[in-house]
Amino acid sequence: MVEFIEYVIQVVPKFMKYLPLTLEMALAAFLCGALIGLFLLWLEIGPGRRGGPARLFAVGYGIALRSVPSIILLFLIFYGPQSLFPKLGWGRLPKPVFAVITFSLIYSAYFAQVFRGAYGSIDKGQLEAALSMGLTHAQGILRIVGPQAFIVALPNLGSMMVLIVSETSLAYLIGVRDLMGEVTTLNARSYNVKTVELYFVVTMIYWGANAVIERFFGFAERKLRQGRGNAP
């Protein structure tokens, strides 16, 4: 037991070097995913007509991306363009980029759902009141409905970020040297005798990082809710 604790304390710093990469990949995927998700929501409820190509695309995209396992898409994005168009130099991009593309695409489908739910939870009267005050439709959405919907969406955005951080661990399967990749390296270097200790440490680091993220989102929600008694 003492030996276990000593080893754990000794390897923690080695892993902390790789935590930033994991968090950067997650943050990039979160932001890109949210942007694509907003775009999908716009396609779905925006000016396009019902049953039109834009809406069909948004709905189909949502169904397809939510039913594909992340690693399959990760492998497809990593290997696909490389073998179809070998001259493009796709394979020379830094490997974390593939992970970011994959998780942005997958989570944009979930983001669209979250945003749609949040948008739907805001009373129609809010937009009508904004229009009657002389705001344009875009202004009404951006200044009145958007900020309220954002607060409603926050808890879901928080759990989405936690999920994305955990999912980035899959990136090591295409050779990214993040937290998970480092475990494999250290494991091989210690001749597979410290496997349990190493995975224990890495699990605790993910847990710690995600606990901080959850706290942050809880804090942000409380701050933004202040003085808005009517928000649910």
């Binding site: 955990s166 899959l170 349990v196 699990t203 993910y206 847990w207």
Partner: peptide, 22 residues
């Protein structure tokens, strides 16, 4: 619940794959 939500399943897989048989 907090533990499982905050940690990757991949890590659980490797962890228990090495720990449980032992």
């Amino acid at each position: 619940v907090s533990f499982v939500r905050g940690t990757p399943m991949l890590a659980h897989l490797f962890f228990f794959y090495n720990l449980l048989p032992m």
